[in-house]
Nucleic acid binder design. Sequence first.
RNA 1: GGAGGGGUAGCGAAGUGGCCAAACGCGGUUGACUGUAAAUCAAUUCUCUCUGAGUACGGCGGUUCGAAUCCGUCCUCCUCCA
Length: 379
Amino acid sequence: MKNFYLEIKHVCKQSGARYGILHTPHGSVETPIFMPVGTLATVKYLSPEELKDMNAGIILSNTYHLWLRPGEEVVYQAGGLHKFMNYDGPILTDSGGFQVFSLSANRKISEEGVMFRNHLNGDKMFLTPEKSIQIQNKLGADIIMSFDECPPYPVSHEYMKNSVERTLRWAKRGKEAHQRSENQALFGIVQGGDFEDLRKMSAQALVEMDFPGYSIGGTSIGEPKDVMYRMIDYSIKYLPFDKPRYLMGVGSYDAIVEGVLRGVDMFDCVLPTRIARHGALMTSKGRLNIRDKKNEFDFTSIDNECDCYTCKNYTKAYLRHLYKCDEGFGKRLLSIHNLRFLIRLTEQIREAIKQDRFLDFKNEFFEKMGLNDVNARGF
RNA sequence: GGAGGGGUAGCGAAGUGGCCAAACGCGGUUGACUGUAAAUCAAUUCUCUCUGAGUACGGCGGUUCGAAUCCGUCCUCCUCCA
């Protein structure tokens, strides 16, 4: 499609990491990019204006959730997701595939699709690759996802092989059902867990089908970090250079840096917003739990290196107070900070790539964050 | 003045002879959270020289092998009647 493509502007001579511009029907964004998640057509607690202010480029929404409420027909008649939620930047929708994993207690997977009971009232629902694409066509995001199975980690080679093969057939079916390929970019999703041969098979088969972009799925579901990085390597080596690569569900700052090093262009994650609502913050000195008593009389900002609205205007003592009183404004301020932290991180990453010093940047960053052990939990 | 009902850990509130350092909720302290079933979940919350010991269920004194639980007495709070 003409109005969707990745323009690779620079490859870091030091690291091989890439800087680019992703063109979409709703504007262009720089990559590598971190995309905030707004499952129910809203990034929880934040307005579109606030997202713009923090330089958020693409935001996510979710097929499964919008299918249940308010229903894709409502969004369609509203004029599509952009109009419905008043966000004129690029939007990406996930296919509902991840819910097959996260709601796994109530589901049954077959060749045709997935039978499951929804989380709202237990109604039986049946989602297929075609149905997922049809819903996403109606929602109208700029980037949409194939309907995949995201098997848990770990799982046997046999199970994973069957799953990957089925997910490939689902990708093909979804691609054939896609009615709006001129203005919605459908991504294929590489699966295969920690098995190199299956990642290879998955990636090569998807490339054969020729998608405008490729996602790497099945990561950040409980596996150790070094395994996650291996999964990325196993996948990316078989993906075309000129197409965007999207690492799904990854949003810890160390994994973003490691992902970029391996050639990832796009990241999304609920982590910054969810942990913000729970009082945990990403800072240039590592993790901070705002609830802790040590912040009671601390009248400094969360992070003196941060340029976000929250850090410019509010103290830890005040934010702790709002948190302990369960005030929505506190969740909003903390969400703004964490999102801006990751977005600013990607800005720094892009700058370092352009300057051919991304490896130096990575080493300095890990040093600063105290992340010497690859599996240490920076976040 | 009379009748009745209460006083349990920071607060509320169960328990009414041994399984009670005392359920449960709130509050407090801390941890977790990765394509959002998440304003959620978990741990911890009398003291200490802590796989044990010491104090503790309004105060004091009894009964009993054993009391937050039974008896006496005092203090105190609430409701109703005068």
